[in-house]
């Protein structure tokens, strides 16, 4: 589904990340760990093609096509969707309108009100995007937009930060729904096309709800380690990222 090959990224004229390799096959969900400021979000922004994140080396392949030079909206139309960590607020732009914009990319019919109901966001549809929303409401609005877009690759940047415990399980369920993980494996295997995900998490809480297949640790500008996400998380929780810096790989 997604292949990031030897990617190096520059921001504001400074080298930020180098030689990043991530390969997410169809149907798999991968997790990106890393301390604050290690550049996790930058990888996602580069996958989306945001201007500030200049790719100096390497390429991004999505569904077999090199998208490294493609504008952001074309990538969204091809099936990349994102839940932002800190989305902007846009005065005067109703949340409903944004959800409708997302729905234009979907293959199926989208009932915006029905989706909003699933996320307890009906009242927010007629409010300006993210204005006066709490942290949890912002995250739910992001997931609502993803549900409307129904992308094939779901990028989730800290989907649980600022969300209370009750809502984390709701978000988890919705993310599983997005990734078709709410279907039992014997049904999922029959599907012609499977969804993939890339989750950035700092706390790891979301992994209590969403199954993942592989984890990466981002340290000192590159991917330092990869392996079983639960095991990586356990180690990080026990000893922090310090050992990752020292890791001899």
């Amino acid at each position: 589904m997604l292949e990031v090959r030897d990617l190096s990224i520059e921001v504001g004229g400074k080298d930020l990340l180098h030689d990043i390799n991530i390969n997410i096959p169809e149907g798999e969900t991968h997790v990106l760990f890393g301390p604050n400021g290690s550049g996790k979000t930058s990888i996602i922004m580069a996958i989306l093609g945001f201007k500030e994140y200049k790719i100096t080396k390497g390429s991004i392949i999505f569904k077999g096509k090199d998208i490294t030079q493609l504008p952001t909206h074309e990538r969204a139309k091809m099936g990349i969707g994102i839940s932002f960590q800190r989305p902007p607020s846009i005065p005067g732009l109703k949340t409903r309108k944004v959800v409708e914009i997302c729905a234009k990319n979907s293959n199926g019919d989208v009932n915006v009100s029905e989706l909003a109901k699933m996320l307890n966001l009906e009242k927010f549809l007629d409010r300006d995007l993210n204005i006066g929303f709490s942290g949890g409401e912002i995250k739910r609005s992001e997931i609502l937009q993803l549900l409307a877009q129904d992308p094939d690759l779901v990028l989730l940047d800290e989907p649980e930060s600022g969300v209370d415990l009750d809502n984390i399980s709701l978000l988890g369920n919705m993310i599983n729904h997005l990734l078709l993980k709410d279907k039992p494996c014997y049904e999922r295997k029959k599907l012609e096309f499977k969804k993939s995900g890339l989750i950035i998490t700092h706390t790891g809480h979301i992994l209590d709800y969403v199954r993942s297949d592989k984890g990466y640790v981002l340290c000192e500008g590159t991917i330092q380690c990869q392996g079983n996400p639960r095991e990586l998380l356990e180690n990080i929780r026990k000893v922090g990222y310090e050992k990752c810096f020292e890791c001899p790989i």
Binding site: L48, T72, H73, F84, I90, I101, C102
Partner: peptide, 16 residues
Amino acid sequence: IAQDQIEYLMARGLSE
């Protein structure tokens, strides 16, 4: 117009 607002909507499928 803030660039993050434009890119946000581009990530939702709108051209610049």
